[in-house]
Design a protein around this nucleic acid. Structure first.
Length: 871
RNA sequence: GGAAGCAUAGCUCAGCUGGUUCAGAGCAUCUGCCUUACAAGCAGAGGGUCCGCGGUUCGAACCCGUGUGCUUCCA
C-alpha cells in the first residue's frame, strides 16, 4: 500500500468516529465493571462550539478514554440546556427580523416559534462535538425541557414550596430592562465604568435661603427621592435635624434623616434616598418607613410616578435632567468618577435595581449539606484553591430569585383564582384539586397560571440526577450504578450558578452528592490575554481549525498548555506543534513499515539494549502519567508522552535499531518495535484518538481497536537500564558536539578509542554508538591516543581520530571550561561538607549524596586534568 | 471597599515534601545539514539577578514578612 507523505486527518477522523459509533463503543449500560461517569455541562441549545467548549470537552474525553482503558464502564452523558433568557433573546431577535413583534404574540404562539427554532438550530453544538472526537453516549442525550425533565423541575418546585422554602414576595431585584425580566445576583456582571458624579442642591424648607448638596451618579432617580440622609455625627448638617427639603423640579417635600450608614468622606456626606431604585436606599427606607416611588417602567423608561419625562429612556433623561437642574439653579458641579455598574450577563443592558414581586428560594438550609460536602472533601475541587471561594459564597448566601418574566422555560406551577388566592401543584389538575377542595362550587377554567417561568439554573441543578431518571424512579438501576458521577469538568465562572446548586440539589433531593471531583478548567484567552468571546470576535472558528489542522491537532493545542484552573493563552503555534506531532508519528510508522520487507529470522537477536532501554522508559513514563492523571495534571501528562514518543522513541530508539541501508532486520526487533509503538499509541490515544487509531491499524493487522484496548498493570522500570540509556545519549551528544566544533562533516568517518572501567556498557552499545557517531571502529585503550580529539565523559576518556586536521585550541578551551566548572562545583560541595552545622543538621542521605558528589567530582577533575596535560 | 491568585529564558509556562550532577520544557533565535521516515525534519549551540527588599534555616526559585506590578472573584 502506498502511504501518503503526511497524516491525512480528514479521512481518518470521519472513518474512525463512524467506526467507533458502529461498534457501539460509546454506549454504556450497567454491568459488573465499576462505572466511570461524567455528565457534560449542557451547552446552550442555541450555542455553537467555541474554544471554551473545545477545552472543556477535550478534557472530559481524555478522562473518559483513560478510564475506559483502565477497565471502567465509562458513560459520558451529552445534552443541552434550554437556556431560557439566552434562547428567548435569540428567538425574539429572529422574530423581529421577520417583522414579528413578540408582544403581539400569545404565549402559545411564541412558544411554538421557539420550539421550531430549537428543532432547527438547537443541538448543532452536539454534532460539532463529534468532529472533536468526543466519545459521548449519544443514546443518553438529554434536554432540560424534555417532558420528563420538566416534570422533575415541577416536582422540586412543589416540594420546596410545601416545605416553605419557596415563597413569593416583593423585594429589591436586578431588573434587565432589555430582556424585561428579573435576574439573580449571579447573572449581574459588575464592570468598572467611567461615569460622572453630579452635585445637586436641594432647598431646605426654612425661611432662609439654604441648600443641602448631594452627589449622585444617577440624577434621573431624583424624581423618586423620598429622603436625604446624613451622618448623625456630621457637624456640617447637625443643625438640620428634624428639617425637610424639596426635591428639585418637582418640589416634593422630603425629610432629612440621620443614619450612620452614611460615608462621611464620600461626596458631600449627604445622600439622596431613592428606596425604589437602590438596595441600600431600600434598606434605609424600610428602617425609616419612607414611601417608595417607582419611577421606572419595565423597559427602562420613566413611569407616570416620575411625574416628568414620562416614557423617555433613563439615559436620555439623565442628560435632560442635568440641563433642567442647571436652569432651576439646583445644579452645582460635576466630576469624573469611576464606579462599578451592573450589566446583564445575557443582554449586556445596564441593570436597574427595582422593587418587584418575584418567587424566591430560601438557600440557608439547602446550602448547609453542600458546604459540608465540599469542606470535608467528599466533593473534591481541583485545584483546591476554589474551596475558599466556595465557602465564602456559601456562608454569605442570599435567597435566590428564581422567577423570570420570560416564556421560554418551565412555567411556574402556581395558579390563582379570581380573588388572587394561590394554589401550587405539579400540574393544573393538582392545583385545581386544592382549589375545588376550598371552593365546593368550583368550575374548571377558573384558575389562571402564573405568567413567569423559572430561572434556567433551577432546572440545570438537577442535571446529574435527572439524566438518569431520578424523578421517574429514584431507586432505578441506572441512577444506582452511575450516580454519584465521578468527575465534573467545568469553568470556574459557573461555580455558583451551577456547581454549588447541583451539590445542593443532590444532597437535598437525593441525599447523595452529584460527583466526587470537580475539575475546573481555565478561561481561554487570546494572545493579548483577552478572554475569548463572541462579542470581541477573537475566538477562532473551531470547525475551520479542525478542518485545516485536524481534530487531534486542536485537541493537542488546548491540552498542552492548560493545567487545571489556570487560564489558557491560546496560540496557534501550539496547533502547529500538534499537527507536526501527528506527522512525526505518521512518518515513524512509515519507517517501521518500510522495514517489513527486510525482516529476517536469520539475523542475530543478541543486540537488545535499545529494546530493553525503551521498555524501561515506557514503564517509567507510565508510572509518572498514572500519578499525573490522578491529580488532573493533564498537560504535564501529555508533555511526558509527547517527549517519550518524539525524543525517546523517534530520535533515539528508532535510530538505534534502524538497520543500515540494504541490511536485513531481525524479526524479533521488528516485532518488538511494533509492540513498543503500539503501547506508545495506547498511552497517547486519550489525547489524540484519531491519529493513534489510524496508525495502530496500519502498523499491522489488528483484531481489536485501540480505543477499546485495555492497559496492563504498570510495573517498575529497571533503573540501571535507564541510567545506561542516559549515559549512551550523553556519549553520542558529546561526540557529535565535538564533531561540530572540529568541523567534521557528518560524512567524515571517525575512530573512537575509550579509556574506561565500564567496558561491558560500551560493548553492549557498540553497534549503536558506531552508527550514531559515524565511527568505523570502536576500541578500548589505557593510554592517550596521539593526534586525536580528547573528550571526557564522566570519568571515561574518549579519543576521536580522523583524517581531518585537529585544532587543539578549541578542545583545550572546552576542557578548561569544564574543569573550571567542576572545580567551583567541588568548592561549593566541600564548603558545605566542612560546615559543621550542615553535617550535624542535614539528613544523612543528603550528606551521603554530597559526599558522592565530592568523590565523583574529584575523579572527573583528575580525568580532565590528565586529558588536558596531553594536549 | 473585601478576598484570592500570579510574577522563573525573547514568548507561553513546568519546577511536588526547602537539599547545585535541576534552574527545566515547548516555541522563537543562531550554526551546520535536502543523511533513503519526517525541511511540518535532523544534528548542535547560545540565552535566566527565579520581580525588589528583609527574615527563618546548615541550606531558599520553593517557607515567612514587606513593597511593586498584573489578573480574577465578591460587594
Amino acid at each position: 500500500m502506498e502511504l501518503s507523505k503526511n497524516f491525512q486527518h480528514s479521512e481518518a477522523e470521519q472513518k474512525w468516529y463512524q467506526h467507533w459509533m458502529d461498534k457501539g463503543y460509546f454506549y454504556s449500560t450497567p454491568d459488573e465493571r465499576p462505572a466511570y461517569t461524567i455528565v457534560m455541562p449542557p451547552p446552550n441549545v442555541t450555542g455553537i462550539l467555541h474554544m471554551g467548549h473545545a477545552l472543556n470537552n477535550t478534557v472530559q474525553d481524555v478522562l473518559i478514554r483513560c478510564a475506559k482503558m483502565q477497565g471502567f464502564n465509562t458513560c459520558w452523558v451529552p445534552g443541552t440546556d434550554h437556556a431560557s433568557i439566552a434562547t428567548e433573546a435569540k428567538v425574539v431577535a429572529m422574530l423581529r427580523e421577520k417583522g414579528i413583534d413578540k408582544n403581539k404574540l400569545s404565549r402559545e404562539e411564541f412558544l411554538s416559534y421557539a420550539w421550531e427554532w430549537k428543532e432547527k438550530y438547537g443541538g448543532i453544538i452536539l454534532s460539532q462535538l463529534k468532529k472533536l472526537g468526543c466519545s459521548l453516549d449519544w443514546n443518553r442525550t438529554h434536554f432540560t425541557m424534555d417532558k420528563e425533565y420538566y416534570a422533575a423541575v415541577m416536582r422540586v418546585f412543589v416540594e420546596l414550596y410545601n416545605k416553605g422554602l419557596i415563597y413569593r414576595g416583593v423585594k429589591m431585584i436586578n431588573w434587565d430592562p432589555k430582556a424585561k425580566t428579573a435576574l439573580s445576583d449571579e447573572e449581574v456582571m459588575h464592570k468598572q465604568t467611567n461615569s460622572k458624579l453630579y452635585y445637586v442642591r436641594y432647598k431646605i424648607d426654612a425661611d432662609a435661603e439654604e441648600y443641602i448638596t448631594i452627589a449622585t451618579v444617577r440624577p434621573e432617580t431624583i424624581l423618586g427621592d423620598t429622603a436625604i440622609c446624613v451622618h448623625p455625627e456630621d457637624p456640617r448638617y447637625a443643625h438640620l435635624r428634624g428639617q425637610y427639603c424639596f426635591v428639585p423640579l418637582i418640589n416634593r417635600r422630603i425629610p432629612i434623616i440621620f443614619d450612620d450608614y452614611i460615608d462621611l468622606e464620600f461626596g458631600t456626606g449627604a445622600l439622596k434616598v431613592t428606596p425604589a431604585h437602590d438596595i441600600n436606599d431600600y434598606n434605609l427606607g424600610l428602617k425609616y418607613k419612607l414611601p417608595v416611588i417607582d419611577t421606572l417602567n419595565d423597559d427602562g423608561t420613566l413611569s407616570e410616578a416620575a411625574g416628568m419625562y414620562v416614557g423617555e429612556d433613563r439615559f436620555a433623561v439623565r442628560k435632560k435632567i442635568i440641563e433642567d437642574l442647571k436652569t432651576s439653579g439646583n445644579y452645582v458641579k460635576e466630576e469624573d468618577y469611576s464606579n462599578q455598574v451592573g450589566f446583564s450577563e445575557r443582554t449586556d443592558a445596564v441593570i436597574e435595581p427595582r422593587l418587584s414581586m418575584q418567587w424566591w428560594c430560601n438557600m440557608a438550609e439547602l446550602s448547609k449539606p453542600a458546604l459540608e460536602a465540599v469542606m470535608t472533601e467528599q466533593v473534591e475541587f481541583f485545584p483546591p484553591k476554589f474551596k475558599n471561594l466556595f465557602r465564602h459564597w456559601m456562608e454569605n448566601i442570599k435567597d435566590w430569585c428564581i422567577s423570570r418574566q420570560l416564556w421560554w422555560g418551565q412555567r411556574i406551577p402556581a395558579w390563582y383564582d379570581a380573588e388572587g388566592n394561590m394554589y401550587v401543584g405539579e400540574t393544573e389538575e393538582q392545583a385545581y384539586q386544592k382549589y375545588s377542595a376550598a371552593n365546593p362550587n368550583a368550575q374548571a377554567g377558573e384558575l389562571r397560571q402564573d405568567d413567569d417561568c423559572l430561572d434556567t439554573w433551577f432546572s440545570s441543578w438537577l442535571w446529574p440526577m435527572q439524566v438518569f431518571g431520578w424523578n421517574e424512579n429514584p431507586d432505578n438501576k441506572e441512577l444506582a450504578y452511575y450516580y454519584p458521577t465521578n468527575t465534573l469538568v467545568t469553568a470556574p465562572e459557573i461555580i455558583f450558578f451551577w456547581v454549588a446548586r447541583m451539590i445542593m440539589a443532590g444532597e437535598n433531593f437525593l441525599g447523595k452528592k452529584p460527583f466526587d471531583k470537580v475539575y475546573f478548567t481555565g478561561i481561554v484567552r487570546d494572545k493579548q490575554g483577552r478572554k475569548m468571546s463572541k462579542s470581541l470576535g477573537n475566538s477562532p472558528d473551531l470547525l475551520d481549525l479542525i478542518e485545516v489542522h485536524g481534530a487531534d491537532a486542536v485537541r493537542f493545542s488546548v491540552m498542552i498548555a492548560s493545567p487545571a484552573g489556570n487560564d489558557l493563552l491560546y496560540d496557534e503555534t501550539m496547533l502547529e506543534q500538534g499537527r507536526n506531532f501527528c506527522n512525526k508519528m505518521w512518518n515513524a510508522m512509515k519507517l517501521v513499515k518500510m522495514w517489513e520487507a527486510r525482516v529476517s529470522t536469520e539475523v542475530s537477536t543478541a543486540d537488545t539494549f535499545a529494546i530493553d532501554w525503551m521498555q524501561a522508559r515506557i514503564k517509567q513514563v507510565e508510572l509518572s502519567i498514572e500519578d499525573l492523571l490522578k491529580n488532573f495534571r493533564l498537560s504535564e501528562a501529555l508533555k511526558n508522552i509527547y517527549s517519550l514518543i518524539w525524543d525517546d522513541f523517534c530520535s533515539w530508539y528508532l535510530e538505534w535499531v534502524k538497520p543500515a541501508p540494504e541490511e536485513a532486520l531481525s524479526a524479533m526487533v521488528y516485532n518488538k518495535t511494533i509492540d513498543i509503538y503500539e503501547s506508545l499509541l495506547q498511552l497517547l490515544h486519550p489525547f489524540l484518538p484519531f491519529v493513534t487509531e489510524e496508525i495502530y491499524h496500519l502498523l499491522r493487522q489488528q483484531s481489536d481497536d485501540l480505543m477499546n484496548r485495555q492497559l496492563t498493570a504498570f510495573d517498575t522500570p529497571n533503573n540501571d537500564l535507564l541510567q545506561q540509556g542516559i549515559k549512551l545519549q550523553e556519549l553520542i551528544t558529546t561526540v557529535r558536539d565535538a564533531r561540530v566544533k572540529n568541523n567534521l562533516k557528518p560524512k567524515d568517518v571517525i575512530k573512537l578509542a575509550v579509556d574506561t572501567q565500564q567496558t561491558a556498557f560500551y560493548t553492549a552499545a557498540k553497534n549503536i554508538i558506531a552508527r550514531q557517531i559515524n565511527a568505523e571502529k570502536i576500541s578500548f585503550t589505557n593510554e592517550a591516543v596521539q593526534g586525536s580529539i580528547s573528550l571526557v565523559l564522566g570519568v571515561d576518556k574518549l579519543y576521536i581520530s580522523s583524517n581531518v586536521a585537529i585544532d587543539t585550541t578549541a578542545q583545550k578551551e572546552q576542557l578548561q571550561k569544564d574543569l573550571d566548572y567542576q572545580k567551583s562545583f567541588l568548592m561549593s560541595v566541600e564548603k558545605k561538607l566542612s560546615n559543621e552545622k550542615f553535617v550535624t543538621n542535614a539528613k544523612p542521605e543528603i550528606i551521603d549524596t554530597e559526599r558522592k558528589k565530592q568523590s565523583d567530582t574529584l575523579a572527573k577533575i583528575k580525568t580532565i586534568e590528565e586529558s588536558l596535560s596531553l594536549l
